[in-house]
Nucleic acid binder design. Structure first.
Length: 887
DNA sequence: CAATGCTGC
DNA sequence: TCAGAGCAGCATTGG
């Protein structure tokens, strides 16, 4: 194959990328803009130029031979910004992953290394392309050497050969040094001739081809001043020319052939891209011909070896090889996502290089495997403990001894990480390439089940990665002091949640249908009234059609706009309500419509054959540490308005004579705030169990308890909410509909009343700026890469997050701890009561009549003592025949 | 699939 | 000046 050499001016491209892109950083706060730009450029030039040999040359060391001639060389250059310097190792890693050689040599610049190789290539007639943002390199252009010069951004480039150079500057490549000798280069502190810029220099060079000839004939040029300068600065020009001349005889310790570009390994590159969070580039890997492995035999060879043994009734001896090791990796594959409905398609076990594939039928009636599963001493490393437990138990298999959950580990290490699929984790941790489920099964319409053999390959590949991830994560958890959070909170909780999900909540289906009928009647009535008032029938659910009616047909005033048109949000409609009776009906229509579609129809769809709803608690979604609930979401069942609250009537105990017990923390977030900032007035208020909003109103408005009006209390309440969310005057003014000025006064008065709160808020932001993350009571950690951003918006958001996360996250820690403790205690006491749901600050149980009194006290005690704070925690317990009645 | 809107804490 | 309340899930519209 014909050789093609590519020489990349590393420093030049790096600087270019750094200044061309905003100061991006990834989720752990590492700046990555220059590395990102470099990677973009690299992928582009490799794809387009298809070089066979590549070198990236770097400047290393401070002084070069040029300093001997001119000690101020590059004297004025600012020190490399630290945000850029810290990215240099990233670029080396990147190039390493691409298997691209890098080189720098003390005493020489990258230019000289490139020049030496370019001259050699020219001599050997090897086609060569130089990539740089520096025009100096144009002097190397030759018959076989061209320069790609960055034009705009990082990926737009101009190609210069001799003709292009002549067209653009009217110069031959050799004259670039003359140009530079005349005009100098401020960035390198090369003087040139004072007062001569590019334009004059080009004019001079049009008459004589070299600096030497120009300064020998100053009189040949018009203009007295110019003539003087040519005489006065002749020496500077000669020196400048010398400085600009690239040295092409650097003694290099390698030969041309050693620069041959080897096959680029997809997994290595993907792993680095993933760790740096270069998402668009990751996507590009699959499409890029650079990484194609199908039509290239050599890359085929580089695919990691993967072997497995399928267990059959005949070869169970294979099991003897590994079963006594502990831990083993256990991976369970399913047909669909939801573990409450999924079927197991296969089970894989791994230890070192031994991978076993166990079909479900074999697993189920295979004694040694079953006893291994149940043995608490036989440790299992899994991905998603909760899911594994549910899947196995639904197949009637008992399981114990989960020692490590790779998914939960990845989450506690960085709860903001959204790419938590096993294949993502393998990439992020550089433990080799693992196909994603989408790759294995296809996605969207192309999704299809796998035949037995490819299925076995896929699932054993997954299990094979688990132990490597376990070792990585264990070390990282230790380093970040997160082991307790994982082992003592999140993993035990996963087990508790698995049980809660499997038990499920009983639904009174006839009640649900009954409510559905009344809601439907209301909707139809409202729909008729609204279309009558509007004088035309239209889709009330369409904001577009609705705004046409309200703001064009009826001419109501526009209060707020959205990106696409007029806003018809509830806040806007509430302001418009006095103007036209239709508005109120629309609000009511929306409210009941929501109830019907989301809560009546939506819940109906989720009822399982056992008459229960089995929600799924997601433990790795919310960056604060909260849980979330899906399919269906049982954490947003209506309560505020009576009409919606009735939905709660359908959630009932699973047996007659049982009750629903609901226990909720009272003001847990404000109590946490009082604890964290140790404000004496707030602490006292909680110690005395005062109504906190009334107390705040008393303190802020400086009045006695009896003088607090309901308006004052509700304003104080809004301020308290704002404090928890990371307050802004604007946010508060919007929320309670007062002028911003007034909101600011409230906030100022609040902070004046509780100075420790302000101190705490300030401290937590300063802390976040220093450390790059904030923490919660149980040491949960959330990184805030934007905390030092220059964009006001991004930074403000990070600051509010810094204030909110320790509060919301600590509340999550507390209730999680209570759940784990409570579950243990209920087991210990062999209670029949079941924990069913968690709604952030509330736990729901079903309880047989004979356990009611015991549970009331047990739940309260465990919740109130989940952690010890400097203020008491308070829990309200309520009991009823449905969730609705437990209020 | 994005935008909008609404439900919860 | 600009934008602007913390954390979620789900239904609907309309491209």
């Amino acid at each position: 194959m014909l050789k093609k050499l590519m020489l990349i001016d590393g420093n030049s491209i790096l600087y270019r990328a750094f200044f061309a892109l905003p100061l991006l950083s990834n989720s752990t706060g590492v700046h990555t803009n220059a590395a990102y730009g470099f990677a973009m450029m690299l992928v582009k030039v490799l794809e387009e130029e298809k070089p066979t040999h590549v070198l990236v040359a770097f400047d290393i060391g401070k002084t070069t031979f040029r300093h001997k001639d001119y000690e101020s060389y590059k004297g004025k250059r600012d020190k490399t910004p630290s945000e850029l310097a810290e990215q240099i190792p990233l670029v080396y890693e990147l190039l390493e992953a691409f298997s691209i050689q890098t080189y720098g040599q003390a005493g020489f610049e990258a230019d000289d290394i490139i020049g030496t190789l370019a001259v050699e290539a020219e001599r050997e007639q090897v086609s060569t392309v130089i990539v740089s943002g520096d025009k100096d390199l144009f002097q190397l252009i030759g018959d076989h050497v061209t320069v790609l010069h960055t034009r705009k951004g990082v990926t737009e480039m101009d190609r210069y050969d001799e003709a292009a150079l002549r067209e653009r500057y009217g110069l031959a490549p050799s004259q670039i040094v003359d140009l530079k000798g005349l005009m100098g280069d401020p960035s390198d502190n090369i003087p040139g001739i004072a007062g001569v810029g590019e334009k004059t220099a080009l004019k001079l060079l049009a008459k004589f081809p070299t600096v030497e000839e120009i300064i020998a004939h100053p009189d040949a040029f018009s203009g007295k001043k110019l003539q003087e300068k040519l005489r006065e600065f002749a020496d500077d020009a000669i020196l400048s020319k010398k400085l600009a001349t690239i040295h092409t005889e650097v003694p290099l310790p390698f030969s041309f052939d050693e620069l041959e570009l080897r096959d680029i390994q997809k997994d290595k590159v993907a792993s680095v891209f993933s760790r740096l969070e270069f998402r668009t580039l990751i996507d590009r890997i699959d499409k890029s011909p650079l990484f194609s492995s199908s039509d290239n035999e050599e890359t085929e060879v580089l695919v990691e070896e993967h072997e497995y043994v399928q267990i059959t009734p005949e070869n169970q001896g294979e099991w003897e090889k590994i079963f006594h090791y502990s831990p083993l990796a256990l991976q369970i594959e399913t047909d669909i996502d939801n573990p409450h409905h999924a079927g197991i398609t296969g089970i894989a076990l791994s230890h070192k290089d031994d991978n076993l594939f166990v079909p479900l039928e074999v697993a189920k009636d295979w004694g040694p495997f079953q006893s291994w599963l149940q043995d608490n001493q036989q440790k299992k490393v899994v991905y998603d403990l909760k899911r594994c437990k549910i899947l196995l138990e639904r197949e009637g298999m008992k399981v114990a001894g989960f020692s490590f959950d790779v998914l939960l580990a990845a989450y506690v290490l960085n709860p903001s990480e959204t790419k938590l699929e096993l294949s993502d984790l393998a990439l992020q941790q550089s433990i080799g390439y693992l196909p994603s489920d989408d790759e294995a099964y296809g996605k969207g319409a192309k999704k299809r089940p796998l035949a037995l053999e490819p299925l076995a390959v896929h699932v054993t590949k997954k299990s094979a990665k688990l132990l490597a991830l376990y070792h990585r994560y264990e070390e990282q958890l230790e380093k970040n002091d997160l082991t307790k959070l994982l082992y003592e909170l999140e993993m035990p909780l996963a087990s508790v949640l698995a049980d809660m999900e499997m038990i499920g909540v009983k639904v009174d289906k006839s009640k649900l249908e009954e409510l559905g009928i009344t809601f439907k009647e209301k909707i139809e009535r409202l729909e008729k009234e609204i279309t009558d008032l509007a004088g035309t029938s239209f889709n009330i659910n369409s904001p577009k059609q609705l705004s046409e009616i309200l703001f064009e047909k009826l001419g109501l005033p526009v209060i707020k706009k959205t990106k696409t048109g007029y806003s018809t949000g509830a806040d806007v409609l509430e302001k418009l309500a006095p103007q036209h009776e239709i508005v109120e009906k629309i609000l009511h229509y929306r409210q009941v419509g929501k109830l019907y579609s989301t809560y009546i129809e939506g819940l109906k769809k989720e009822i399982s054959p056992d008459g229960k709803i089995h929600t799924r608690f997601n433990q790795t979604i919310a960056a604060t540490g909260r849980l979330s609930s899906t399919e269906p979401n049982l954490q947003n069942i209506p309560i505020r308005l009576e009409e919606g609250r009735q939905i709660r009537q359908v959630f009932v105990p699973s047996q007659d004579d049982w009750s629903i017990l609901a226990a909720d923390y009272s003001q847990v977030e404000l109590r946490i705030l009082a604890h964290l900032c140790r404000d004496p007035i707030l602490q006292k208020a909680f110690l005395e169990d005062r109504d906190i909003h009334t107390q705040t109103a008393m303190d802020v408005f400086a009045v006695e308890a009896e003088e607090v009006s309901s308006l004052m209390r509700s304003k104080a309440k809004a301020v308290n909410f704002g404090i928890v969310y990371g307050i802004s005057a604007f946010g508060l003014s919007q929320n309670i509909n007062i002028p911003q000025k007034e909101a600011k006064e409230f906030i100022d008065r609040y902070f004046a009343t509780y100075p420790n709160v302000r101190q705490f808020m300030d401290d937590v932001v300063v802390d976040a700026r220093k450390q790059g993350y904030v923490t919660t009571l149980l040491n949960r950690r959330r990184y805030l890469p934007d905390i030092n951003a220059s964009q006001f918006n991004a930074r403000s958001f990070a600051e509010r997050t810094a204030m909110n996360t320790p509060i919301q996250g600590s509340a999550a820690d507390i209730i999680k701890n209570a759940m784990v403790n409570l579950s243990r205690e209920m087991d210990k006491r062999k209670l029949k009561s079941k924990m069913l749901l968690q709604v952030h600050d509330e736990l729901i149980f079903e309880v047989p009549a004979e356990e009611l009194e015991e549970m009331k006290s047990l739940v309260r005690v465990q919740m109130e003592n989940a952690v010890q704070l400097s203020v008491p925690l308070k829990v309200d317990v309520n009991i009823g025949k449905s969730w609705y009645e437990a209020k």
